[in-house]
């Protein structure tokens, strides 16, 4: 990969005594779909949250385009930047959460419009039109005016995907998007994500869906204990792993 869109460089993070990330580096190219696999507690989610600065790395940094998240480069120094600046930097990434986190007091279409109108300053009529189109795109043309608590988990997650896409981010980050769903609802969300991948979206996906990773990912990254153990094409990492820890994990989940 010559030009990376998103790059984590030697990121370390600890929570109290627990070293969650140990100098992890990861780079994602434009249009690439990267799946992060690994046992729970391996640091996948924390790494993903560092990619939009929901977590601030203790050491190392994350670069999106030519900006360092949370910092401003000036005169050969990295200066911690303002909260407003971080909010602006976050616009280049969109995030889909495990628990959906739809704004509970807003309807589906209002959830999707919130970013464009409040952050980008798009006028309401245009934002509504575009939000409607996005909801139609994820198969929710009937549910524009439903509140989150009137939607199934799968529908909520598809609204969340539309909400992330509405900001037209360079990269979409997915944090175990199907882990909170009933088995029969997992498929509808995975199908939506797959169609995004086929349309050329750049995606980083933390998941336990090995089948999805094998089918959709351009690259699979296997993490354990805060480190990347193995990374490469799905055919090599999933079907012919080398590291014993990866072999052990895959033999238990496949």
């Amino acid at each position: 990969m010559t030009t990376s869109l998103l790059e984590a460089v030697q990121v370390s993070k600890r929570f109290g005594q627990n070293q969650v990330l140990k100098s992890v580096s990861l780079s994602v190219g434009r249009g690439e779909v990267v799946c992060l696999l690994g046992p729970s507690g391996s640091g996948k989610t924390t790494l993903l949250r560092c990619l939009n600065h929901l977590e601030r790395p203790d050491e190392g940094f994350v670069r999106v385009g030519d900006e360092v998240l949370g910092y401003r480069q000036a005169g050969g120094v990295l200066r911690e930047t303002s909260e407003r600046d971080i909010a602006r930097q976050r616009r280049s990434t969109g995030m889909v959460f495990q628990q959906f986190n739809l704004f509970a007091h807003r309807t589906a279409i209002e959830n999707v419009m919130e970013g464009p109108t409040q952050v980008k300053g798009v006028d309401r009529a245009r934002a509504r039109q575009r939000a409607g189109a996005l909801l139609d795109h994820v198969g929710l043309s009937e549910k524009h005016n439903a509140y989150p608590n009137q939607l199934s988990g799968g529908q909520q997650q598809r609204v969340a995907i539309a909400r992330a896409m509405a900001m037209e981010p360079d990269v979409l980050l997915f944090d175990e998007p199907t882990s909170a769903l009933d088995p029969e609802l997992v498929l509808e969300v995975l199908e939506t994500m797959k169609s995004l991948a086929l349309e050329g979206a750049t995606m980083v996906v933390v998941t336990h869906e090995i089948g999805f990773a094998r089918e959709v990912a351009d690259r699979v990254v296997f993490m354990a204990d805060g480190q990347i153990l193995e990374e490469g094409e799905p055919s090599s990492v999933i079907d012919a792993p080398e590291h014993p820890r990866v072999k052990e994990f895959l033999s238990r989940v496949l």
Binding site: L54, R90, R91, F97, N101, Q118, V119
Partner: peptide
């Protein structure tokens, strides 16, 4: 109000004062 609501606001690029006012 669950933290997830704040994080979702931050993730679409809201400043924390906007997250407070809107969410």
């Amino acid at each position: 109000v669950p933290t997830g609501q704040r994080e979702a606001g931050a993730a679409i690029g809201m400043t924390s004062s906007k997250v407070f006012r809107r969410i």
